[in-house]
């Protein structure tokens, strides 16, 4: 086989001096870890929607209570037990203020002579459910976020110290954790509530008391993984102090995991608070949280399901949104896990 070649101009074979420095150039724009993660998160539709939904719910939790002229515990028996009525939905037969009373469909607003519309209806004491739901959301979020923050602070410190110093310190600290973990946390919570005055503080403490254990375990695992990596060893050979290693090298590397885990802690705390309030260990009347509202609502579920519906829907949306966002963040921070 003989090969045929195109005739090429002699110029083509002129040697060129290639600048070797050019071969070292990096063409891509410089992105740090968080920018990179944000780009990936933006591509995740569920996570983006969740961010918007959460944003909306948080705004409503603070603004919603002022949208109507009614206070949270403003009672007025003359307008008790009204079903929801929203003027622009009424013509299609939803939320038109009608309810079945004794088998007959009646317009309760007309019957009780109420001019105003209650978007989520009113409860047995005539309190505006709309205001109460957002107040409840506010309280639930507050409890969850504060409890989650306490979790993070205690969990990171405890797990970090345990893993970083290792050896005997780690042994003792882990035994303590195991003992704490062994006690059913409902027992601890019930004892706490009995000792303390029931209220927001008591619930936050009750949730945080055992909640940090999960975080501390995750942080401990991460610190154990990183503390023998070569970049930490390099810092040590350069003479870096423990403080420097912890704050400059370890924390930035486990921050992503902490953020993800917090995203999952918040809905857990919301749910736990709701659960405690629902079984009567949580907030006491007249305070409202999503849990107490659901508790109130389920008693009348047959006749006035709307009292249960509004807080239950808000609670569900909160939980789903936090979880989807947490999932999205996990994929964005650790793309290797997915592809």
């Amino acid at each position: 086989m003989t090969q045929q070649y195109d005739k090429l101009s002699p110029d083509a074979f002129k040697p060129v001096k290639v600048n070797n420095k050019e071969a070292e150039q990096i063409a891509k724009p410089s992105l740090n870890f968080w920018q990179d993660a944000w780009l990936r998160l933006r591509k995740n539709k569920a996570a983006v929607v969740s961010i918007f939904v959460l944003f909306l719910l948080v705004i409503m939790a603070f603004v919603g209570t002022h949208l109507t002229s009614h206070g949270v515990d403003e009672q007025e028996l003359s307008r008790a037990n009204l079903p929801p009525k929203i003027s622009w939905l009424a013509p299609i037969g939803i939320a038109d203020g009608h309810a079945k009373v004794g088998g007959k469909d009646v317009d309760l607003y007309a019957q009780k002579n109420v001019k105003e519309n209650y978007w989520f209806g009113t409860d047995g004491l005539g309190r505006d459910m709309f205001t109460r739901v957002w107040k409840g959301t506010q309280i639930s979020l507050l409890i969850a976020v504060v409890a989650a923050l306490i979790d993070v602070v205690i969990g990171v410190a405890y797990g970090g110290i345990s893993a970083y110093y290792g050896g005997r310190v780690d042994d003792i600290m882990q035994r303590i954790v195991e003992i704490l973990y062994g006690i059913p946390n409902l027992v601890i919570v019930i004892l706490m509530i009995m000792v303390m005055e029931p209220g927001i503080t008591a619930i936050i403490i009750a949730i945080a008391l055992t909640g940090w254990i999960g975080m501390s375990r995750i942080v401990r695992g991460q610190v154990l993984k990183f503390k023998n990596q070569e970049f930490i060893l390099a810092a040590r050979t350069l003479g870096a102090s423990n403080i420097r290693i912890i704050f400059k090298h370890l924390l930035p590397n486990i921050l992503a995991i902490i953020v993800i885990n917090t995203m999952f802690t918040v809905p857990t705390a919301i749910f736990f608070e709701a659960f405690l309030s629902f079984i009567g260990l949580g907030l006491q009347a007249p305070n409202a949280s999503l849990g107490t509202l659901i508790n109130d609502g389920y008693k009348n579920i047959q006749f006035q399901p709307y009292i249960l519906a509004a807080p239950a829907v808000v609670l569900s949306i909160l939980m789903i949104a936090f979880n989807l966002l947490g999932d999205g963040l996990r994929d964005a921070f650790d793309p290797k896990m997915k592809d």
Partner: peptide, 17 residues
């Protein structure tokens, strides 16, 4: 005394410039 490490991926802190 200084040291150069084996793994070029693990020996630099990924969060630092």
């Amino acid at each position: 005394m200084q040291m150069i490490f084996q793994d070029p991926y693990a020996s630099l802190n990924p969060r630092m410039k």
